[in-house]
Amino acid sequence: MEQTENLSVQTTKVQNPRLRMLKTMLERLWQNKLAVFGGVVTFLLIFTALFATWLAPHDPTEQNYSAVLQAPSSEYWFGTDNLGRDIFSRVIYGAQVSLQAGLISVGIALIIGVPIGLISGYYRGFIDEYIIMRMTDAMLSIPALVLALALAAVLGAGLTNAMIAIGLVLTPNFVRLIRGEVLAHREKEYVEAGKASGISDFSIILKHILPNTIAPIMVQATLAIAAAIIVEASLSYLGLGTQPPNPSWGSMLATGQGYLDSAPWIALFPGALIFITVISINLFGDGIRDMLDPKMK
């Protein structure tokens, strides 16, 4: 009797299983209000960056010496800086640079770091132990900013090169993390069972191990985006990132530093946006991680 009962329940539920899976995943995400909030804010930020030209009330590079260091007003919502540029417009344009810097450099780090970490952790051996691991150790032992600075200096100034430099600096973190995860998972019985079933190493790595390392990668990636935005800011400050007069949140923050007493709004708004961006990407990342975990309800 129990059996028939169950069958009827099951059949009504399982009509289009793939759809059902997607539906439960989205439901899971929707239930996580913080993640939804993070997602909405992240989406808004990307939207702002994409449509900066239409959204910004002023030209972000236009200098207006009659309106220098003005406090926020109805004309200049976020006030003006030392050259009389509209901070609201600069923040909007800055979103382009900062989000690019965050997403693309982390993308670079993932593209390089994930395969190296997976292969290195799965096959172990001499190259893993003595070359890849020692190299990551060496890179991690140098402060991120110093390393990025050196790389950016070699590659030359400019946003693209800055992103490549930041991406490379972030890579060893991912290699280490993923290698560690792979080491833990390769000993698990389900991997052994896969091998025993004759599944190729390639499939085991890609289909079995990688999905099980998504959670820590997700967390690390959202944190890295935040770090990348800040490192880009520092590089810009030192003249190796975005070139003036183009705005980035980082360079604006750097300018504002000198006026913290007299005109705190110059640093406040880009600073607040970096903070909001990092938090929302983090919340959204957590939500995605939970969404992908079949064990979460």
Binding site: E189, Y190, A193, G194, S197, K207, H208, N212, D293
Partner: peptide
């Protein structure tokens, strides 16, 4: 073929 002891560890939780 082989069947392992631990019915929790021997199945990939994500598949």
């Amino acid at each position: 073929q082989i069947i392992f002891q631990d019915p929790f560890a021997s199945l990939n939780p994500r598949m």
